[in-house]
């Protein structure tokens, strides 16, 4: 049975490969969360290895602005997370709206580690618009993966974004290939203003 890698370790691994993730912090009280927010909107998540789908389990609240909202959400989440003990509460800066994509890795029993890119968010399961390759991939493979997507023109409308996403895909492929992990989900990765925000991260050993 694969085991979920602890968030801070997973986040460290991301940094090691030059993949930026959105600023976040474990908080143990609502006050800490308010301090972390510094007046800006945040997201609160209850993270438990026993709950793999945070939004399905109701363990995430978005766009919390101000002390009142944050405290209220903290209380609600604490209640819901009770059945997923042990859990940790995490505060994360709210990112800009953009296009959600997914990058990830899976281990195939025959061919070993595979890397994936696809249209993300609510569309992942509906459109199943993704491209898959065997790790490690070459820059040509990365370009070919992007070209294969039906949503290619939306995800990477210009050369700069093609380059940015292609390079990110290569980094993710390296991270996945070179480490002793069996599954990886960067979902969603939010694309906006020619850059990306890795909002959520899940690594299985």
């Amino acid at each position: 049975m694969p085991e979920l890698m602890e968030y801070s370790k997973a986040n460290f691994l991301l940094k090691k490969y030059g993949i930026r993730s959105v600023g976040s912090k474990y908080v143990s009280t609502a006050v800490e969360a308010v301090q972390f927010a510094k007046g800006k909107p945040i997201v609160l998540k209850a993270i438990s290895t026993r709950a793999l789908h945070k939004s399905k389990s109701g363990l995430i609240q978005l766009n919390l602005q101000g002390e009142v909202e944050i405290k209220k959400a903290f209380t609600a989440l604490t209640k819901k997370a009770g059945k997923f003990k042990p859990y940790k509460m995490q505060a994360q800066h709210m990112v800009k709206n953009g296009l959600e994509i997914i990058m990830g890795g899976n281990t195939d029993p025959q061919f070993g580690k595979l890397i994936l890119i696809g249209l993300g968010g609510i569309y992942v399961e509906t459109f199943k618009d993704f491209a898959l390759r065997v790790c490690p991939i070459t820059p040509r493979d990365a370009r070919s993966m992007l070209n294969q997507l039906k949503s290619n023109g939306i995800i990477a409308p210009d050369d700069a974004s093609k380059k940015m996403i292609g390079e990110l895909l290569l980094k993710v492929s390296r991270l996945f290939y070179e480490n002793d992990i069996s599954e990886l989900d960067l979902n969603p990765l939010i694309l906006h203003d020619g850059t990306y925000d890795a909002v959520d991260l899940r690594i299985l050993k």
């Binding site: 694969p2 979920l4 793999l52 997914i102 990830g104 890795g105 899976n106 195939d108 029993p109 025959q110 061919f111 595979l114 994936l116 696809g118 992942v124 399961e125 199943k128 993704f130 491209a131 898959l132 390759r133 065997v134 991939i137 493979d141 070919s144 294969q148 599954e183 990886l184 989900d185 979902n187 899940r202 299985l204």
Partner: peptide, 27 residues
């Protein structure tokens, strides 16, 4: 379908055995 058990991530649920073969053939 190959490999029993539920997928743990979106990636795993998309990247099944059939898709893996397709990927190998294309790559």
């Amino acid at each position: 379908a190959q490999g029993a058990g539920a997928a743990h991530s979106h990636t795993a649920s998309l990247a099944g055995s059939h898709e893996a073969y397709e990927a190998v053939f294309k790559q």
